[in-house]
Computed example of a mutant assay.
Amino acid sequence: MSTKEYIKNFIKDPNIASVTPTSKQGVKEVCSKMSFENRVVIIEYGPATGVFTDYLLNQISHDSVIITIELNENFVHYLKNNVQDGRVHIHHASAERVQDIMDEFGEQADYILSGIPFTLMNNEVRRNIVKQTHSVLKPGGKFLPYQTFFQRDRHLKDHLHEHFSSVQDRYVFRNIPPMRVYEAIK
C-alpha cells in the first residue's frame, strides 16, 4: 500500500493509531522482547499493512502461527491480497473479539502485539480488551502494546497493572512518531 493510500485510510478512520506505519527500528524494538526459538502463537491487533507481520514471518518457525485482528476493511483487504503464508490467519474484527477468535482456534497465545490506539477508546473498551488479552495468553505470555509517545498512564498502563503480574514501559524515539512500548507479562 502506498504512503498516500495509508494516509487516506488514517484520515478516514479514527481507529488508526498513526499517520505512518511503524519503522523497521520500531518493529525490531517491540519484537526484541520475544523469543522465536520454538513454535509460537502470536496475535497481532491492528496489523494495518503488515509491517510487523512481515518481520515476524521471517523470524518464526514453520509451525508457528500469527493471528491478525484488524478492524479497518481496507487493511484487511490489503493483507488478504499481500500476505500469502499459511501461518497467518487474518480476521476482520475488533480486538474485543479476541476471546471468541481464540476459542475457535483452540490455543492460547505466547505473545500479543498491539498498535491499536487505546487513547481513542472509552474506558470500558480499554478495560475489556486488556482483560480478554490477559485471558488468551499462556502463563508467562507477553502483551506488547506500542502507542504514540504521549500516551497517559490512564489510557493503558493503569489497566495493564490491573491484570498483569509485571508491567514495564520504555520510549522508542527512532520511530515517527516516537512510541511508548509496554511489556506486560501474565
Rank of each mutant, 00 (worst) to 15 (best):
G106N: 05
H91I: 12
I60W: 00
V65D: 11
Q108Y: 02
N81Y: 10
D85V: 01
N122V: 04
S94Q: 14
N123Y: 12
S114K: 07
I101Y: 05
P145Y: 02
I67A: 02
I60E: 02
V65P: 05
G50W: 01
A93E: 13
E70N: 11
Q151D: 13
H92N: 12
H155T: 10
N82F: 09
N72V: 15
E73M: 04
Q99K: 12
P145W: 01
I101G: 08
Q59I: 09
H62A: 14
N58Q: 11
A93V: 12
T148K: 09
N58H: 08
P117H: 10
F150N: 08
N74D: 15
F52R: 00
P117S: 09
A93N: 09
F75A: 11
V65G: 10
V125Y: 10
Q147C: 05
L120I: 03
V65C: 15
I60L: 09
P117R: 11
S64A: 15
T53M: 13
R97C: 11
Y146A: 07
V125E: 09
G50A: 08
N128W: 07
S94D: 15
G141M: 04
K142C: 05
L156H: 07
T68P: 03
P145D: 03
E70K: 14
G50M: 05
L56H: 06
H91K: 12
M102F: 06
F150L: 05
D103T: 09
I101W: 01
E96Q: 08
F143T: 01
K131Y: 07
S94C: 15
N74M: 11
R87Q: 06
N72C: 15
Q132I: 07
E104K: 07
K80W: 02
L144C: 01
D63Q: 14
I90K: 00
L56I: 14
E107K: 04
F105K: 09
Q99P: 07
N123P: 06
N72F: 09
F143A: 00
T148R: 13
E107V: 11
L113C: 13
I90L: 12
T119E: 07
F143V: 01
V125G: 11
I90E: 02
Q132R: 08
L156E: 03
Q99W: 13
P117I: 08
F75E: 09
I116H: 01
H134G: 05
F105G: 08
Q84S: 09
S64W: 01
D54M: 14
K138L: 09
P117C: 13
M121T: 02
S114N: 06
D103K: 08
K142N: 11
I116N: 04
S64F: 03
P139W: 02
Q132Y: 04
V51I: 09
H134W: 12
Y146W: 15
D103L: 06
V51D: 13
Q84E: 07
L56E: 01
L113A: 11
N82G: 14
V51P: 10
I116S: 03
V88W: 01
N81S: 13
E70W: 00
T148G: 15
K157Q: 10
N122E: 10
S114P: 04
G140F: 12
Y78D: 14
D153K: 14
M121E: 06
E104F: 05
I112C: 07
S114W: 00
V83D: 15
